[in-house]
Design a protein around this nucleic acid. Structure first.
Lengths: 237, 237
DNA sequence: GTGTACTCATTTGTCCAACCAACTAGGGGT
DNA sequence: ACCCCTAGTTGGTTGGACAAATGAGTACAC
């Protein structure tokens, strides 16, 4: 289910066409900006009906692989990031407690575990930049705005690891993380707790104090968790 | 482009149907596990053709909102997380040194950072299972087979964390990790190094020896890295 | 020669009708 | 009461049709 290759093995004609179009893109060396054959040409090439091809194109479109414009055709793009982004912001009116725990658990592993990487990578300039973001957060007028700076703080911290894969994953999770932040952090941000915690974390980085950093970061992330739990309970009661 | 609501404003009939189905789910209070009306019913409800409904269903399927089973119907699910990560598993053709570093760096953060979670979650049964996998690995005939057991060992370790998102991410990375393993670990597995390292890690888990666990796991992962580097150099030279 | 307006083939979007294969439920026979 | 079989339902696929908008080529006016 997780592995897309299973889709091909699925035997569903549409999934097979999706796979064959992907292979076509690969073998023909098509890249971003190139145009795909027309739907009718694809029908002929793959000996299938146009509806099947169209459903396959819908999949590729949903995946952000192609951008199809009416009366013009399909061009290859790479909007996968945006699409993954879309999917998360799709219908998440409710962030389940389970989702919250998973995301925060993941963040805790990454952000506390990355201590040594961050210590060795952080320059004075980086620290100044992080402090500036922290300042902007506390000066933000709305919770939404403040949450964005909060997330930016953590994202730039992660960027210091220098691992693009991890940064990508953070990018995907952005909508959910933002929602989580906006939900429970109203009072914390206003009262300056988040600001002070960020400052303490920065100080730990400056002094390369691993123990302090890990403790502060963990506490920081779990503080949000506690607030979230309160919110949920207050909604329940 | 990023905002899904634009799809609805797009005017495309399919996108409108997608939006209306989402609204239907919301107003009817449908949740995960519930069944959607049949395609033909949706045609009638929305006064549209079946192809349009089907293309809309393809979108919802691609987004991980519904799971459609032939001859049965569409049930509501929430696999958005999986789907979002799926999208990135599209082009994993080449494993560059950079990709390798990033993946292994990610694994190091997760697998060493998860020590305490693993200690508290691991039961004797889990440990026995892991030992069995390790045995199967060393008895495997081919490198491919051995790599699969090697990955299974690590995956089951990660499963002990109890964080489905992380497990999903591992699922996505599976092809790349396997490629990495198959590439550089031939001699290591045959010589039993990997087996012994796994055993040592299990012993550290049994005794809840955090320091030993983290050291052994880090060394284990970086050993693979060194082998990979050798392979690359030998290919270059 | 140049620029404009027009025509027309092309392409995607949508719809319709039909058939297939598999699953489900219910009836009929034992 | 149990089993088998049949008919209806459902998603999967096909082929064909028309509408609307685009873009390219052409004819015409100046």
């Amino acid at each position: 289910m997780v592995n897309p290759s299973q889709d091909a093995a699925n035997g569903s004609a549409v999934d097979q066409i999706v796979a064959r179009i992907r292979k076509l893109i690969e073998t023909d060396g098509l890249t971003v900006g190139d145009k795909l054959p027309t739907e009718r040409e694809l029908c002929e090439t793959f000996a299938t009906s146009r509806n099947t091809v169209r459903e396959a194109m819908r999949m590729l479109k949903a995946y952000g692989i192609v951008d199809v414009r009416p009366k013009v055709g399909a061009t290859i793009v790479d909007q996968r990031m945006n699409r993954a982004f879309d999917i998360f912001s799709f219908n998440v009116a409710e962030v389940s407690r389970k989702t919250f725990d998973e995301i925060q658990g993941f963040r805790e592993l990454i952000e506390t575990g990355a201590a040594l990487h961050i210590f060795s990578a952080a320059t004075p300039h980086d620290l100044a930049s992080l402090r500036a973001i922290n300042q902007q957060m506390v000066q933000a007028r709305s919770v939404v705005e403040a949450s964005q700076f909060d997330l930016q703080f953590h994202t730039e911290l992660i960027a210091l690891i220098g691992n693009k894969s991890i940064l990508d994953i953070y990018g995907i999770m952005t909508p959910v993380i933002l929602r989580i932040m906006q939900r429970g952090k109203t009072r914390r941000i206003i009262e300056g707790e988040t600001f002070r915690e960020h400052e303490a974390i920065l100080k730990a980085i400056e002094t390369s104090d691993n123990l302090a950093y890990q403790y502060l970061m963990r506490t920081h992330l779990r503080a949000g968790l506690a607030t979230f739990a309160d919110e949920v309970e207050s909604l329940d009661g």
